[in-house]
Each structure stands twice: as structure tokens, then as C-alpha cells.
Design a protein around this nucleic acid. Structure first.
Lengths: 134, 134
DNA sequence: CTTATTTACAACCATTTGGTTGTAGATTAG
DNA sequence: CTAATCTACAACCAAATGGTTGTAAATAAG
């Protein structure tokens, strides 16, 4: 329920993952290398930017552990690391869980668990800011 | 199966969503307002930074449609927009699908769909050995 | 051998980001 | 009314981002 204190993803790591995914070129690279490994120059050929720019994008993805590089001869094969994608997905799923709890009024149940608080339940969700029971 | 050309999320929108999630403070804000709406100053009280800084974080989340603001009196209630979270989750799920397809050797099917692959796909069939990357 | 390919990395530049302080407008409280 | 609170926004700053070009090293090819 806490979303990121209940699993092993440190804040800085999550920062890197989402930052890496916040660029269309990088998401496209992930898409390609998840399908099959590509060399860096092979990737670079697909974008209207310099080789060095693509190299930097790959480096960002690598820092986030979304891809890994394996040397093969003079080229470097970039492959997708789906485990990291899966962890990011789990994180977002946790956010949705949070919402589902609220949507089903489980907030009220949790509040009742803690303290018998009459009157606070019901449809009044935003007209009452005195419930600082966090 | 192309991850972002087959659904309604434009690249710039996805950029905004992931960028907004790439900051621990902003993720924490999302967590809080998914539970229940908070005013901006109520949120600001929880962080070791200025009110204006929190205001900016909320603005980033708002541009990404991860939260919305509703005026109530002199304060502004910030609430979580779970639909956007759900769409981001779906996006990452699609990436995982991509990997599962590869793992099962459905490369041929994916090649037939041919999503956004402007050439550059030479032979390089050596990634077909079901080699897990761990 | 020489040449071409592939990668790495440094230096540089413009823009964005994430923070600050300060000011001003709305609204509520006394 | 005046005073306090909440928000918006501008101006400013340091650091990061996303791109460029240029140089150099390692490997492959002729």
C-alpha cells in the first residue's frame, strides 16, 4: 500500500527508471531491443540524430538497468532487461491498488479499524479537511 | 502491439507522465492525493522545501494529468487521477508482452506486424537462443 | 600492412529542471 | 475594517538534459 517502501526499489532507482522512460526515442530503443539485441550503430541508424546522441540515450537506459550491453567483437550488443520493466509495472499497479481501495470505501473500513469515528463515513470525501488522521 | 502507436497516448503525453513520475517527491504527492484530496499547503507542509517548490511539483503532475485541482474557497484541492496511472501501467504491460512474445519465439509474428521499424534490420538472427539475460 | 567500422568519451552549447525569494491577488477570520 | 492564510506567478540561479562535433582506440576487412 505504501507503493515503494514495501519492495526493493530505492527512490533513486525508480527515478532513473521513469526518467529513462520519459523520452520517446529511449522508449523506442527499449521496444527494439526487447525484440532482439541490436548493436549501438544499428540502433543509431534508425534515428535522425548523431551516433553520439543515441549512445547517450543507451547510456541512460543502461543506468536505469532497462538495457544491458554485451561486447561482441568490435560492436556492443544492447538487449532489453524486462525485469526492470516488470518492476516499474508493479510499482504503477500498486498505485492503482491504492485507488481501488479508496474507490471501494475501504478508507472508511481502515478508519473504523483504528478508531470508532462516527459521522466521518459516508459520501463526504472532499468537504471535510479536519480528518488529519494520517 | 507497438506499445504506443496503437493506443491513445501520444508520445508527448507519455513523456509528461513518465517525467512526472521520475521524482520521489512527486510520487509521494501522487500517493497522498490518491488516498484523499489535499490542499497545496497541506501537501507543502510535508516536505522540506518551499511552498513554491511543492507548487511546481503539483504543476508538473497536473500537466501530466496525474492529478487535478479543484478550487474550494481560498484553497485548491489536489486529487489523484487514476486513469492516467492506469494508462501508464498498460503501457509498461505492453512492453512486458513484447518480451513474452520474444521469449516464446514469436519473433516471426512480430516481424509480420512490423510496427515502427524503418529498415536497419539486417540478418543478426543470433538472439534466438532463448538466452535469458540473468 | 592500410583502411573502414564501431565504440567511447571529451568539450561545448542551448534549454529545461528544481530549487529559491519576493510580490500580489483572493479569501477567510477577528 | 484589518490581519492572516492560501495560492499564483515572476525573477533568478545552479545543475542536469539533450543535442552537437571532434578525437582516439579497438576490431574487422581488403
Amino acid at each position: 500500500m505504501v507503493v515503494n517502501k514495501s519492495d526493493q526499489l530505492a527512490d533513486a532507482e525508480v527515478d532513473r527508471i521513469f526518467h529513462a522512460l520519459a523520452d520517446a526515442t529511449r522508449r523506442d530503443i527499449v521496444t527494439r531491443v526487447l525484440r532482439r539485441p541490436h548493436s549501438v550503430s544499428e540502433l543509431a541508424a534508425g534515428y535522425a540524430m548523431s551516433f553520439a546522441a543515441v549512445q547517450k540515450h543507451v547510456a541512460v537506459l543502461e543506468r536505469a538497468a532497462l538495457v544491458s550491453k554485451t561486447k561482441r567483437g568490435r560492436e556492443q550488443l544492447v538487449r532489453g532487461e524486462v525485469d526492470t520493466v516488470a518492476r516499474a509495472t508493479e510499482l504503477l499497479r500498486a498505485y492503482e491498488q491504492l485507488w481501488h481501495a479508496r474507490a471501494e470505501g475501504i478508507d472508511a473500513l481502515l478508519a473504523a479499524e483504528r478508531v470508532s469515528d462516527p459521522g466521518a463515513t459516508g459520501a463526504a470525501d472532499s468537504a471535510n479537511d479536519t480528518n488529519k488522521t494520517d
